[in-house]
């Protein structure tokens, strides 16, 4: 028997990593394909670990924020990862590119959130490669809903809740239209389109009102800002959140650690470089 380089296969454990014995039509559904390959995404916990749904609070120590600006969506997250009151990592990536035109910003349990992002990325790729077309915008939204809903038992046990923001660019939008879209999810997987901005995480309460104010009464409304204005605004918002929320980091000048900031526009997802963020920070302080 060829273990295909997989130690579990050599040990005779039922874990079919590579040899799909027969071709089945999964209709582009990556989760079905994983099931067919005996790969389980779910973690079985003993029943007595459940909190029976009483006052379960999803830990989401972070701040991620997305704004719709003139060319699409700008989305950013701070870099701090915490465990209780301890800072355990100061370079966490919370804004993850999923495909050429979509980005997931995560708050909540990192292990589950990163796994959801990974499944999502592979699902979109698998659909494109197997069905020879891109998954539709609605299809992408539902895929993420399904993953969040499937994670509900973990969320209810208070150890694996994830509340993400999903931002993408709708290539079906007319040339003169802004195809940038921002979606917010609840723990059950329902998605809501936020027209101009969205924020989540423990620091979000400190900036949601500011976002509303800027969007409604700002000298330049969020949706009319150019990239430079939007970057400065987002850096100021994260700075504000870090001032009041211990789980959100600001700009670390000594170690040169900046937030993750990405743009999602018609040409795709792009990172705003550290050099540019440094220059914008200087402007943001003035």
């Amino acid at each position: 028997m060829n273990g295909k380089g997989n130690f579990l296969n050599r040990m005779g454990v039922e874990h079919e990593e590579f040899a799909l014995k027969e071709v089945m039509n999964h209709k582009g559904d990556f989760l079905n394909l994983l099931k067919h390959a005996n790969y389980s995404l779910k973690i079985d916990l003993p029943s007595d670990t459940a909190q029976h749904g009483v006052d379960v609070e999803i830990a989401h120590s972070t701040t991620v924020v997305a704004v719709r600006y003139a060319e699409g969506v700008m989305i950013a997250g701070d870099r701090r990862a915490t465990a209780g009151t301890s800072v355990i990592y100061d370079r966490a990536e919370k804004v993850l590119q999923i495909d050429k035109h979509s980005v997931l910003a995560i708050s909540g349990s990192p292990a589950i959130a990163y796994e959801i992002a990974r499944v999502l990325e592979h699902s979109f790729q698998y659909f494109r490669r197997s069905q020879l077309q891109e998954l539709s915008l609605e299809g992408k939204l539902r895929m993420l809903s399904r993953l969040i809903r499937d994670n509900l038992p973990m969320a209810l046990q208070g150890i694996g809740g994830v509340i993400p923001i999903f931002a993408l660019y709708d290539l079906g939008a007319a040339d003169e239209e802004n195809g940038g879209k921002i979606f917010f999810y609840d723990a059950l997987g329902a998605h809501f389109e936020n027209v101009n901005f969205a924020t989540t995480g423990s620091g979000s309460i400190w900036i949601r009102g500011v976002l509303r104010y800027l969007s409604r009464f700002g000298d330049t409304p969020l949706q009319e800002m150019d990239e430079q204005q939007a970057t400065i605004t987002i850096l100021r918002l994260l700075d504000t959140a870090s001032e009041y929320d211990a789980a959100t980091s600001g700009y670390n000048a000594r170690a040169q650690i900046f937030p993750n900031v990405k743009t999602v526009t018609r040409i795709g997802v792009e990172d705003i470089s550290d050099d540019e963020l440094e220059a914008r920070y200087a402007e943001a302080q003035s």
């Binding site: 990593e17 590579f18 799909l20 394909l33 994983l34 067919h36 390959a37 790969y39």
Partner: peptide
């Protein structure tokens, strides 16, 4: 049929490892 076999296998392999 064979395109799906190789695509499925590569996709599972790429995800698992």
């Amino acid at each position: 049929r064979l395109r799906m076999l190789v695509t499925d296998t590569a996709s599972v392999q790429g995800f698992q490892n």
